[in-house]
Simulated assay, not measured.
Amino acid sequence: MWDIQTPADLSRLSGGDPIVEWAAQGFGVGVRAWTAGAAVAVASPDVSKHDRLAVIGPVADAAPLVRDVLREVGPSYRPFGDEDLVRALAERVPGLEFSATFGWMDTAEIPEVTTSAAWLDGDTGVEALLTEASPSSYAWPGHPGVRRWAAATGDRGELLSIAADAWSAPEVGFLAGVATHPVARGKGLSRQVSGFVTAELVKRYGRAALMVDRGNAAAIAVYRRLGYTYRRVAAAGITESAGQ
């Protein structure tokens, strides 16, 4: 395998794949990338809660690449990519176990949304709303990579629905931390906030992306209406016995 040294080389070798460009995080601290044959792998520490190993390419090239990269970076990294590829990797890479399927969605379109949502000046009230409405959120105030929060607010300025610009890369902005207070649900506020943040991300980075639970049909429908397209992805991990 060969090291990839620059974002330009990564874009060329990956065909501009948004998953690997997002994982590279502009080649920030600790990020490394490799290629072998037609496969590309990017190891990114602590991005969207996990040490991630984004992988693309044919399994014949990707399997030995993932095997060698995991030996180098360690078992905390979770291979992540298109579902069919990750399933095939789990069958071919010793100690690797398929763990979860979910959705990657992205868009390069600025959605047309009428909204009163705006960026917050700080994050006061965000943690309380997440605790109430979305305690399993990956994005939280003060966490590394979580840059800023937007919100739709009530008449007294209270936060009703929120979303974050988190773990964005120079080529791909990332939407996370979407949550709406239970008393404000059913009013289209999450669409308004998500639409506002999506528009801001596309303007700044050229593309916006997010991850979504594949069973969350309501959220997927909202994101589709905002112009996002759905890509079936999955993750795998080194089994505990193999990582010892």
Rank of each mutant, 00 (worst) to 15 (best):
T124R: 13
G103F: 02
A90P: 10
L89D: 07
D123C: 07
V86Q: 01
P79S: 10
L96W: 12
V93S: 03
V93N: 03
L130M: 04
E132Q: 09
P94T: 03
L89S: 05
S76H: 08
G125I: 04
G122K: 06
A133E: 00
V113I: 15
R92P: 04
R87S: 05
V93W: 08
L120Q: 01
R92L: 14
S116I: 06
I110L: 12
F80P: 05
A117V: 00
M105A: 14
D84E: 14
A117L: 13
T115E: 02
G81M: 04
E132F: 00
L129F: 14
E83V: 04
A118Y: 09
F80R: 14
A88S: 14
G103V: 04
E132R: 05
D82T: 10
A90T: 10
W119F: 15
P111E: 11
S76N: 00
L120Y: 03
G103S: 13
D82E: 15
A88V: 05
L96R: 06
A128Y: 01
S76G: 01
P79K: 04
D82C: 02
S116R: 14
D106A: 04
A128R: 06
D84N: 13
E109S: 15
G103E: 06
T115W: 08
V86A: 01
V93I: 06
D106M: 05
L96V: 06
D84G: 13
G103L: 03
E91L: 11
Y77C: 12
Y77Q: 12
T124F: 05
L129S: 13
R87L: 02
F80L: 14
E112H: 06
A118T: 09
E132M: 02
F98M: 12
E132T: 09
V126D: 11
T115N: 10
W119Q: 12
G95D: 13
W119I: 12
V113M: 07
R87G: 03
W119T: 11
P94V: 11
T115S: 08
L89C: 06
T101M: 06
D82P: 15
T114W: 09
E109H: 15
S76Y: 01
A100Q: 11
W119N: 10
S99N: 10
G122S: 11
R87V: 03
E132K: 03
W119K: 14
S116L: 12
S76L: 06
D121N: 07
A108Q: 13
